[in-house]
Design a protein around this nucleic acid. Structure first.
Lengths: 113, 113
DNA sequence: TCCGAAACTTACCTTCTGGTGCGTACCCTA
DNA sequence: TAGGGTACGCACCAGAAGGTAAGTTTCGGA
């Protein structure tokens, strides 16, 4: 997305990193602390394994999360946010807050009229 | 998007409003002040008329921009941000800043290695 | 011997997003 | 009469995003 855009304001780049249906939720769940693949799958309700892995790979490539493999049986993999991921999470917080307020506003509008 | 999501953190709602390829750029161009359809089309480089109109309608429905029609010949329509739109623009600013820094980091990484 | 768990991988299919191009009403200019 | 500008609407189409379902490897347990 926005590969050919006049830089505008940096939003394009940011949305490439946390855009899509799932990444924000994934980042949110991981930001509490290291978490296993299976646990993540249970927490991010509704996501398919394919999508979870695909998104995790992309987020890893973007450098916002880190993957650690433990050579155990059964296999264990843990995901955690990187320093960059933490800054992204911080940058995204105001937007999350806005989203909450906005949702509330919508609800009130629907109730009120 | 995220209609059936556990509220998580409000980000889902926010991304429904400024998600997609163009809305951020449109909001950015409008936030400087009222702007006509044609001017907007010229500023948001690469957008098609269909997409511009479609996005404007959605943003209007979401209450972040306002449309004012002047019954003149040739027709004139101006778009401006609402108070809610301004708050969204503010909420999105940190993310834009992050995107800029991130882009720079990527460039440096590419140059350095 | 079959099953289940973990963390994937692969193939296939559907839905959504965005793009292209044409048509519209109205007026002005040439 | 022809063409251009404004702000759209509509139909069709391609590609990306996302969903579904199955297979893989290794082990322990019934």
């Amino acid at each position: 997305m926005a590969k050919n855009m006049p830089e505008a304001c940096g939003l394009g780049a940011a949305l490439e990193v946390i855009g899509g249906k799932w990444k924000t939720f994934i980042l949110w769940e991981i930001h509490f602390g290291p978490i296993r693949f299976g646990e993540l799958k249970r927490r991010v309700t509704g996501i398919s394994e394919k999508m979870l892995i695909q998104n995790l790979r992309e987020m890893e490539a973007d450098g916002i999360i880190a993957r650690e493999m433990f050579h155990e049986i059964p296999p264990r993999v843990e995901y955690s946010v990187t320093e960059l991921g933490r800054t992204l999470n911080d940058a995204v917080t105001p937007l999350a807050t806005w989203g909450k307020v906005y949702s509330k506003r919508i609800m009130e509008t629907l109730e009120g009229g």
